[in-house]
């Protein structure tokens, strides 16, 4: 029996495996009918202890388009977690019913506990402010489709870089490509955690921290905006003080490159003005489409299913 693969952190996948997933996602987009029934009789559980729109629905759409079935819950309140059941017991039970599990949990490291308790593949669909590797796969696919490459570019990450799990996973992923420079744009209170800085230093990456979008804008090839997340704050006063730190509008884009790619994992609140949506450089809804294709590729990879010849 082959070893069970999980996706807890983006570094659980090699660069070659990520390249393979991107190639499969592109093939799915080009040859959709070849994948229509490929996961017949397979079941995916989406266990969302924390709310989600895009991640949960894109996982479910992905599995349904592959011909599989989906079951699960969309909030902790509609599961036995509300009665106090542990993550271990929930995952151990659900693992008896399905072939693969995608889980989101507000506590950091919860998917690691899940993976210790079941023999079906676990996908981390977001663990607190820690990691969000499938968003990163989505981001990589988006960048590849827009730029045609994943190396040699300056990536600006803006907003809540402390609790922004999508930011942490994206940095870890892009550290493995040549010639990536990171510009970290945040107030000091929401700066990237030390362990991410350690990883950038260990990889010999070029990075700098700035406090305004304006000073970073001219050099960016990618601008990755994030939301200041109310749910990560213990103190509402801190949230209110920091929530409007960065708002991207057309005025701020005046000094940006013509081929800048503006990304956002969504949902947004007000950090990107709606007037930017019609700018050809805005790619965040295209990103959402990429999310379905890459999750289809990931499900196939973790289940060990290949396209029929």
């Amino acid at each position: 029996m082959s070893e069970i693969r999980n996706l807890i952190n983006i570094t659980d996948l090699t660069v070659e495996e990520i390249d393979g997933l991107i190639a499969t996602a592109d093939d799915i987009a080009a040859n959709h009918s070849a994948y229509e029934n490929i996961c017949a009789h397979k079941k995916l559980a989406t266990l969302f202890f924390e709310p989600s729109t895009r991640t949960r629905l894109s996982f479910e759409a992905a599995m349904l388009e592959l011909g599989g079935s989906v079951l699960g819950f969309s909030s902790a309140n509609s599961s036995s977690a509300a009665k106090g059941e542990s993550v271990s017991d929930t995952i151990r039970t659900v693992g008896c019913y399905v072939d693969i599990i995608a889980m989101r949990h507000p506590k950091e490291g919860a998917p690691i506990v899940g993976a210790q308790r079941t023999t079906v593949p676990i996908i981390n669909a977001g663990d607190g402010g820690h990691f969000h590797p499938t968003q990163t796969l989505t981001d990589l696919l988006t960048i590849k489709r827009k730029k045609g490459r994943l190396n040699n570019m300056t990536v600006g990450l803006c907003g809540d870089l402390k609790f922004g799990r999508t930011v942490h996973s994206l940095i870890e992923a892009m550290l493995r490509y040549e010639g990536i420079k990171f510009v970290l744009i945040s107030p000091q209170e929401l700066a990237v955690p030390e362990y991410i800085k350690e990883k950038m230093n260990a990889a010999g990456a070029e990075w700098k921290e700035v406090e305004t979008l304006e000073e970073a804008m001219p050099e960016l090839d990618i601008l990755y905006m994030t939301r200041v997340q109310k749910e990560r704050f213990f103190n509402e006063e801190d949230y209110i003080r920091l929530k409007d730190s960065y708002i991207l509008d057309l005025e701020k884009l005046r000094t940006a490159k013509e081929d800048l790619t503006i990304m956002h994992p969504l949902p947004r609140v007000n950090e990107i003005s709606v007037e930017v949506d019609d700018d050809p450089r805005a790619c965040y809804f295209f990103q959402a489409l990429c999310g379905k294709h890459i999750r289809m590729a990931l499900i196939l990879f973790l289940l060990g299913i290949r396209k029929k010849a």
Binding site: S86, V87, S88, H105, P106, K107, E108, G109, A110, I112, V113, D127, G128, G129, Y195, E198, F234
Partner: peptide, 21 residues
């Protein structure tokens, strides 16, 4: 000691730390 860590609420977990420096 991170209150956001799963180990702060989950019973029977092996508390594990790795040396990084």
């Amino acid at each position: 000691k991170n209150p956001r860590c799963i180990t702060s609420v989950e019973q029977g977990i092996v508390h594990t730390f790795r040396l990084v420096d």
